[in-house]
Write a protein that binds this DNA or RNA. Structure first.
Length: 418
RNA sequence: GCGGGUGUAGCUCAAUUGGUUAGAGCGCCAGUUUGUGGAACUGGAGGUCGUGGGUUCAAUUCCCAUCACUCGCCCCA
């Protein structure tokens, strides 16, 4: 039995579920391409270094969440835990950095060895966009606007909150980090055990703590805003102005921080309270140092990734997405199967969705036609074949007419049947 | 990785203090209906009680372990 279960945290996408994913991906694909973001795909596996160097040596993703294997040559290969680093690697590998800006869209599975929960899987699916080569805040605004367009298109903009924050540039962040550590060290004993660990590894994360005691201590903590240099402040202000100008609603949440090292300046998340402790359905930020860290030229970047699994959960809950209703071919019996299939093939070539019924007598076949939610049935038997006709039956009303074989397409179009 | 909850048919759930062949609804299959489906009625199939051990004359029920899901933490999309 155990062997017949899927691997923990990895789920089958049966047709109804898969359809939801396809709908979401199609919408992003459409929206992204309207802004000139072209779809691309990178391998599911990369050398470990691609992530280790860029995400940060102490990030949880790198230290404990990667699926890692040694290939036959002894190289350490990992299943990608996120999409951005792979895209960055790809633009360097392929020499695409010569001419910017570069705009990409991707969709696919990511893998993280975490404890599964609702909305948190070991094989998760993400969609994402990346904009390389634009240091100007207009790029940030455009990318966030793209995210907002997606949420609006999915009708989720009113069920999510767009929260933004700035992490500042490296100089600002370093200065703030020192101030924060100094402050928190004075309260070391009162911090939660988790935060005591974070103090060494990634002190900024403490800002995001859910521990009540931590929250109390943080009230007196220095604010990152106060450590921002003029340049960082201006970046953040211009982005806010841009969002307001485009009438994109947002909130500033100074507690948004990033687990990955490559982020700077803007950090944003679309959050929901509908998915338990998994609040973020889409998140992103600016990663100006990423490409150079990897050994490429110094090219700035900004982008986001959305969780398809989480979006699908919000979008459809338990409802099935609407499916197109097929036409169905119903031969009277086995003798007319090929005649029926011939008609089906003829209509399929012209773009009609046509399904066959297999085996059994008329009654049984109509029952099957009903089950697949067909709109119309073509009935073909002795009578029809001898007169060169076909019976077209409306499965909702029961009404039926006989048509000459060569009138089928014209009649379907006349009635607006797809 | 830490702490809690759950696991019985394809799905949603029953099963009295441990006691014979573990039930229902929905769904599925067949028939009533050999050129007409949806509704109704009748019948049928389908279960290693998540898995493995233990206690007991006897375990779906009690104990332990394990797996999966789930809630909170952690982390993140």
């Amino acid at each position: 039995m155990t062997a017949l279960q899927p691997v923990r945290g990895m789920h089958d996408l049966l047709p109804s579920e898969h359809k939801k994913y396809a709908i979401i991906i199609d919408k992003v694909r459409k929206i992204a391409s309207l802004s000139g973001f072209a779809e691309m795909a990178t391998p599911l596996m990369e050398f470990k270094d691609v992530f280790k160097r860029t995400l940060g040596d102490v990030s949880d993703i790198v230290t404990k969440e990667m699926y890692e294997i040694a290939d036959r040559g002894g190289e350490s290969i990992v299943l990608r835990p996120e999409g951005t680093a792979g895209i960055a690697r790809a633009i360097i590998s392929n020499g695409l950095t010569q001419s910017t800006p570069l705009k990409y869209f991707y969709a696919g599975p990511m893998f993280r060895y975490e404890r599964p929960q609702k909305g948190r899987l070991r094989q998760l699916h993400q969609i994402g966009v990346e904009l390389f080569g634009v240091a100007d805040p207009v790029g940030d605004v455009e990318v966030i606007a793209l995210a907002y367009d997606l949420l609006k298109t999915l009708d989720l903009s009113h069920r999510t909150t767009l929260e933004i924050n700035t992490l500042g540039d490296e100089e600002s962040r370093k200065r703030y980090r020192d101030l924060l550590v100094t402050y928190l060290k004075d309260h070391h004993a009162a911090l939660s055990p988790d935060s005591q660990l974070r103090l060494d590894r990634n002190p900024l994360r403490i800002l995001d703590s859910k521990d009540e005691g931590d929250k109390k201590i943080l009230k007196g903590a220095p604010l990152l805003v106060d450590s921002l240099n003029a340049f960082s402040q201006e970046m953040f202000l211009k982005i806010q102005e841009g969002l307001k100008f485009l009438e994109i609603p947002f909130m500033i949440n100074p507690h948004i921080v990033r687990g990955l090292d490559y982020y700077c300046h803007i950090a944003f998340e679309a959050t929901t309270t509908e998915l338990g402790s998994q609040g973020a359905v889409l998140a992103g930020g600016r990663y100006d140092g990423l490409v150079s860290t990897m050994g490429g030229p110094s090219i700035p970047g900004v982008g986001w990734a959305g969780g398809i699994d989480r979006l699908a959960m919000m979008l459809f809950e338990d409802n099935l997405p609407p499916l197109t209703r097929p036409l169905v071919v119903v031969p009277m019996n086995e003798d007319f199967d090929m005649k029926g299939l011939e008609l089906a093939q003829r209509l399929r070539v012209q773009g009609f969705t046509v399904e066959m019924t297999y085996g059994g007598a008329l009654g049984k076949r109509l029952k099957k036609a009903n089950k697949i939610n067909a709109s119309y049935a073509f009935i073909i038997g002795e009578e029809e074949v001898s007169s060169g006709r076909v019976t077209l039956k409306n499965l909702d009303t029961g009404e039926q007419v006989q048509l000459a074989q060569d009138q089928v397409e014209a009649t379907l179009k006349e009635r607006g049947i797809q």
